[in-house]
Amino acid sequence: MSENAMPPSAPPRARAEIDLGALRANVRTLRAKAPGAAFMAVVKADGYGHGALACARAAVQAGAGWVGTATPEEALALRGSGALPADVRIMCWLWTPGGPWREAVEADLDVSVSGLWALEEVMLAAHAARRPARVQLKADTGLGRNGCQPGEDWDRLVAAALEAEEGGLLRITGLWSHFACADEPGHPSVAAQLGLFREMVAYAEARGVRPEVRHIANSPATLTVPESHFDLVRPGVAMYGLSPSPQLGSAADLGLRPVMTLAASLALVKQVPGGHGVSYGHHYMTPGATTLGLVPLGYADGIPRHASGTGPVLVAGKWRTVAGRIAMDQFVVDLGGDEPGAGAQAVLFGPGDRGEPTAEDWAQAAGTIGYEIVTRIGARVPRVYVNE
Score class of each variant (00 low, 15 high):
96 T>R: 15
343 G>E: 12
374 V>H: 11
340 P>E: 03
313 V>L: 15
214 R>T: 08
272 V>D: 02
339 E>C: 02
331 F>G: 00
176 W>F: 14
163 E>A: 13
192 A>V: 01
183 D>V: 05
120 E>D: 13
188 P>L: 14
261 T>Y: 07
43 V>M: 12
319 W>P: 01
318 K>S: 14
69 T>W: 14
151 G>P: 10
202 A>Q: 12
201 V>C: 13
5 A>C: 11
21 G>K: 06
48 Y>R: 07
288 G>R: 13
280 Y>P: 02
107 A>K: 04
371 Y>M: 04
222 T>I: 02
95 W>D: 06
63 G>Y: 03
236 G>D: 10
268 L>N: 06
168 G>H: 09
335 L>I: 05
144 G>R: 03
213 V>G: 02
137 L>W: 06
284 Y>D: 02
140 D>G: 03
93 W>S: 15
33 K>V: 00
56 A>E: 06
40 M>L: 15
137 L>H: 05
113 V>E: 11
300 A>M: 06
283 H>K: 11
191 A>V: 02
81 S>R: 01
300 A>D: 10
52 A>H: 01
46 D>M: 03
130 R>E: 15
277 G>W: 09
344 A>T: 07
162 L>Y: 11
259 V>K: 00
235 P>V: 09
142 G>F: 05
333 V>N: 00
49 G>Y: 07
334 D>E: 07
308 S>C: 01
56 A>Y: 02
210 R>K: 06
178 H>S: 02
220 P>M: 10
178 H>N: 07
62 A>Q: 08
157 L>N: 00
181 C>E: 11
36 G>T: 09
23 L>R: 03
171 R>T: 10
24 R>I: 07
204 A>S: 05
45 A>S: 15
3 E>A: 09
14 A>W: 07
86 A>Y: 11
8 P>V: 14
179 F>R: 01
150 P>I: 15
126 A>L: 07
224 T>H: 13
102 R>L: 02
228 S>M: 05
318 K>F: 15
292 L>C: 04
239 M>P: 08
96 T>D: 15
213 V>R: 12
131 R>E: 08
336 G>H: 10
359 A>W: 05
374 V>Y: 11
29 T>P: 01
45 A>E: 14
306 H>N: 06
384 V>S: 14
209 V>D: 06
303 I>W: 07
148 C>F: 13
37 A>G: 04
330 Q>H: 05
180 A>E: 09
87 D>G: 03
14 A>K: 00
84 L>K: 03
272 V>Y: 08
344 A>C: 07
375 T>M: 10
321 T>F: 09
183 D>S: 12
191 A>H: 04
64 A>F: 01
241 G>K: 01
38 A>D: 08
263 A>G: 02
86 A>E: 11
306 H>R: 15
231 D>W: 14
340 P>A: 01
120 E>Y: 09
314 L>G: 04
181 C>R: 14
87 D>H: 12
258 P>A: 05
123 M>A: 15
353 D>I: 04
46 D>V: 00
365 A>E: 04
265 S>L: 07
387 N>L: 09
366 A>I: 01
299 Y>N: 03
293 G>K: 01
195 G>K: 06
307 A>K: 00
